[in-house]
Design a protein around this nucleic acid. Structure first.
Lengths: 225, 225
DNA sequence: GTTGTGCCTGCCCGATCGGGCAGGTCGACC
DNA sequence: GGTCGACCTGCCCGATCGGGCAGGCACAAC
C-alpha cells in the first residue's frame, strides 16, 4: 500500500482509522482533539476497558489501535493481554502502545505481545502523529528513549526468570516484605518454619539475590509486591 | 459571591477562569476540550512545568488551577511545592489537584500544601466539572475515594516521623536495600561494622519496623529509595 | 509408568542480625 | 561553657538467617 501518494487530494484515500483504548476519558478526549486536527487521521472508536475494546473493534475496523499501557497498578498484564489478543486475532491492525512511564521490561513485553510501536505520553503532537503514520504504513515506531530502554532491557538479566515465582512463593514474598520471620510466615500460612524457609530460599534464588532485604527491593522494582 | 445567580444570561458573569498544569500535552488538550464544552468555564492558560506555571499565572489571572500531581517519579515534591507556592502567593486562587493514583499520604500532603480539592483522573466529565465549580465557589471538592484515602492516611502512623532520616541514614538505607550486610555497608562507607549496625538500628526505629526487609518495603512505599 | 514440578518437612551449622550495654568526637545553638 | 544532635566505636548475646543435607506426597504430562 505504499504506492506513490499525492500529498493531498479528495479526502478519503489513505485515511488512517484509529481506535483509542485508555481508561481515562480525559486522555481519550485529548487524543481525539489532537488527532482530528490531521486531515488523514480519524478516530473511529474509543474503549475504556479491554472487554470494551474487543467488543467494538469488530464494527469499527480500525487500522491502528492506540493502546494505553499502565503499570504500577500491578496489573500491567491486562493491557498486554489485550495487545496480544488484538494482534493475533487482527494481524492487519497495528498496535501502538502509549504509556506514561518508561520501563525497560514493559517495552520488551509490549513487543512480545505484538505491539508495533511504543511512545511515551509526553511526546509532542508531531511525534505522536508521525508514530501513528509509521505504524499505519506497517513500519514500527519507537521514540529514542523507548529504543534505548529496549536495549537496556535486553542486556539486563532475564526478567522471565524473576517473574516465574509460583503462587506460593509470591504469597511468602508478601509476608517476607512485611518483616515476618520464617517462623511467623510458617504460622501465617499453616506450614512449618522449615518450609517457609525453603520458599524464601527459592525466592532468593529466582530473584538472583542472597538477602531478604534485597529480595524486597528487587521484587518491588519488578512490581511483584 | 454566592448571591442568587440567574441560571443563564449574557455570558460573562460567574465565568470560571481556569489554568491547566500538566506536563502531558495530551492531557491538557483533553481537559481543554472537555471544559470548554461548558459555557461558564474557560481555560485561560496552560503550563507544562512549575516554572512555566509561575510565569504565566500573573498575566492570566485564573480563578482556579487544575494541577496534575504525579508521584512514582520520586519527585512528587515538585508539584506539591508549586501548589504551596501558588496558594501562598495567590490565596484567592483555588487549586484543584488532579492525579492518576490514589495515595493516602499524597492527599494529605496536597491539603497541607493548600489544595482545595483532589480528584482522580478517571472521574467522568460531570464529576470533574462539578469539582471545578465547587472549588471556584470557595468550597472544597474531594471525591469519595480521595476522602476515604484521607481518613486512612490520618489514621496511619505519622509519616513525618519516617521522613526525618538523616543523610547518613538514607545512604545506609540504600545499601541495605541492595542486600549488603552490616559489614559490607561499613566497608562501602569507610566506617566500622558496628557503626553501620548502629545506623541500621536507627533506621528500623524511625521507620517503625524491626526487620531490614520490612524497612526496604516501608522505605519504598514512602519513596525514600 | 516414568518423569517432572509444586509443595511440604526435618536436621545441621556458620554467618548475620537486632537490641542491649558502654563510650567518644565534632559542630551548632543558646 | 554547656547542651544537643549527628555521627562514630567497641563488646555481648540470643534469635534469626541462608545454604546445605536428607526425604516425603500429589498431580499432570509425556
Amino acid at each position: 500500500m505504499t504506492t506513490l501518494t499525492p500529498p493531498q487530494h479528495g479526502n478519503d484515500v489513505e485515511t488512517v482509522r484509529i481506535m483509542l483504548v485508555d481508561d481515562h476519558a480525559i486522555v481519550r478526549q485529548g487524543l481525539r482533539s489532537i488527532l482530528e486536527r490531521e486531515r488523514d487521521l480519524i478516530v473511529v472508536a474509543e474503549a475504556s476497558t479491554p472487554d470494551e475494546a474487543l467488543t467494538v473493534i469488530g464494527r469499527s475496523a480500525p487500522h491502528i489501535v492506540l493502546l494505553d499501557l499502565k503499570l504500577s497498578t500491578a496489573s500491567d498484564t491486562e493491557g498486554l493481554d489485550l495487545c496480544a489478543e488484538l494482534t493475533s486475532s487482527h494481524p492487519a491492525i497495528g498496535v501502538l502502545v502509549l504509556t506514561t512511564f518508561l520501563d525497560e521490561q514493559l517495552v520488551l513485553k509490549a513487543i512480545r505481545a505484538g505491539a508495533r510501536g511504543y511512545v511515551l505520553k509526553d511526546v509532542d503532537t508531531s511525534g505522536l502523529v508521525r508514530a501513528i503514520r509509521d505504524v499505519s504504513r506497517g513500519e514500527s515506531a519507537f521514540d529514542a528513549r523507548s529504543a534505548a530502554a529496549m536495549v537496556r532491557g535486553l542486556n539486563a538479566p532475564d526478567p522471565e526468570e524473576s517473574q516465574q515465582l509460583t503462587a506460593r512463593e509470591r504469597e511468602v514474598l508478601r509476608l517476607l516484605a512485611r518483616g515476618l520471620s520464617n517462623r511467623d510466615i510458617g504460622v501465617k500460612l499453616y506450614i512449618s518454619e522449615t518450609t517457609a524457609k525453603f520458599h524464601v530460599g527459592n525466592i532468593l534464588r529466582k530473584l538472583g539475590v542472597s538477602r531478604r532485604a534485597e529480595a524486597v527491593y528487587e521484587a518491588t522494582k519488578l512490581g511483584l509486591i
